[in-house]
Simulated assay, not measured.
Amino acid sequence: MRMQAEESDSSWLKLELEDDFDEELEQEVDDARLPPELRELHQHRKKSGIDRGLYFRELMRLQGELVKLQDWVVHKGLKVVVLFEGRDSAGKGGVIKRITQRVNPRTCRVVALPAPSDRERTQWYFQRYVSHLPAAGEIVLFDRSWYNRAGVERVMGFADDGQVEDFFRDVPDFERMLVRSGILVVKYWFSITDEEQQLRFMMRIHDPIKQWKLSPMDLQSRVRWERYTRAKEEMFERTNIEEAPWYIVEGNDKKRARLNCIAHLLSLIPYEEIPRETVLLPERVFNPDYERRTLPPELYVPEAY
């Protein structure tokens, strides 16, 4: 009987682990879907340099460490801001998705702001970002940030030369002020080649599920590739400060980029595993006089599967 119970427990745990694995697998299948129009182009693309099994094992391990890191941030009342910048389709969203996949969304949240409103355009430039900064025990991930002014706004002509110069003059002081207030500021730039961005844009053009990711602004970024490059180089030169340095993530290989970025983020914060009290599931209280009602069938979702 004991052996049967152990086998039953093992089977249940296996199913639970498979469910976790499937969640990541669903995303991988989505990444790998290939429209017929791109099959020939895809033949010339390099395969990921990391073994698929190793990738999944390392991703699960790193995500487990992220949970420990989050517990530590909450326990110590730390405040963490992580900026994700880079060219369109460079892989920022994929990394953010893997970072947030297993952690508590109440204390690790993503900020992805739309274009500023008419009112926000009249505010101090950093004002709309300040309200999203973390309180004690929080991690905030910015999917694009105040560096829009040094990139897309500058290249697309939404900010004039004077506004860009004001930004470059102000942003080091702004970030130093954040650091002095106790916020850890981490800045990542995801770098991909011209050829890789072209392939990813073509995927979005021909894949109905991914077309929402492609905006007119993205298409113009292809035209202005070299202007973005010059803007990026000046941004690094003028905003790579000791208190908040830039870290470049090589993004052509998505799997390597995800693992490298997460591993690096974990290395920046010395954390320890927080001891937890043993959790005991209380016994359910049964009321002998209660009889469960039979609900009408139209309340139930049809079992199509």
Rank of each mutant, 00 (worst) to 15 (best):
K79Q: 10
E85H: 03
G251M: 00
V111D: 01
F21W: 14
N252Y: 04
I248N: 01
V164Y: 02
F158R: 06
M217D: 12
F236P: 04
L259Q: 05
Q163Y: 08
G182S: 01
R276G: 14
V103A: 06
H42I: 07
V223M: 10
R204S: 09
K76L: 13
Q198P: 06
D207L: 05
L41Q: 12
K14C: 10
N260K: 13
E23D: 07
D218P: 05
P208V: 07
Q27S: 12
H264F: 05
M203Y: 13
V152L: 09
Q198Y: 14
P114Q: 02
D22N: 15
D22Q: 15
A90W: 05
K79G: 03
G182A: 01
T239L: 05
F174R: 02
G151D: 00
G93K: 07
K210N: 08
W189V: 01
F201P: 08
V155W: 04
S8Q: 14
A112M: 00
Q211R: 14
L268K: 04
H75L: 12
E65T: 09
I269V: 08
Q63K: 07
P245Q: 02
A135F: 15
K76I: 07
Q101W: 14
V179D: 01
E138T: 04
R57L: 14
L41E: 13
E23M: 04
F168D: 00
L199M: 13
R238C: 09
R102D: 13
V73K: 05
V80E: 00
R109F: 04
I209R: 07
Y271T: 07
R98M: 15
E23L: 04
L280W: 15
L34H: 11
H44F: 11
A263L: 10
A304K: 10
G182P: 00
Q197L: 06
G91H: 10
Y188Q: 04
D31M: 11
D30M: 12
P302Y: 03
V279Q: 14
M60L: 15
M3E: 15
A304T: 11
K79H: 06
A150P: 01
S191P: 06
L15M: 10
L219R: 15
D194E: 09
L38Q: 05
F286K: 08
Q198N: 09
V186A: 02
H206Y: 14
R98A: 13
R154I: 01
M217W: 07
R98L: 13
L69Y: 09
L280F: 15
D22C: 14
Q63M: 10
V74Q: 12
E40A: 07
E277C: 12
E85N: 02
S117L: 04
Y271L: 04
L17R: 09
P36D: 07
T193G: 12
R39I: 08
T193I: 07
R256W: 11
V185D: 00
W189T: 00
E37Y: 01
R45V: 10
H42K: 10
R33K: 10
E277A: 15
E283K: 12
E196R: 01
T239Q: 04
L259I: 08
H132Q: 10
D19L: 02
E237M: 08
I241A: 06
I139R: 03
V80K: 00
D253A: 02
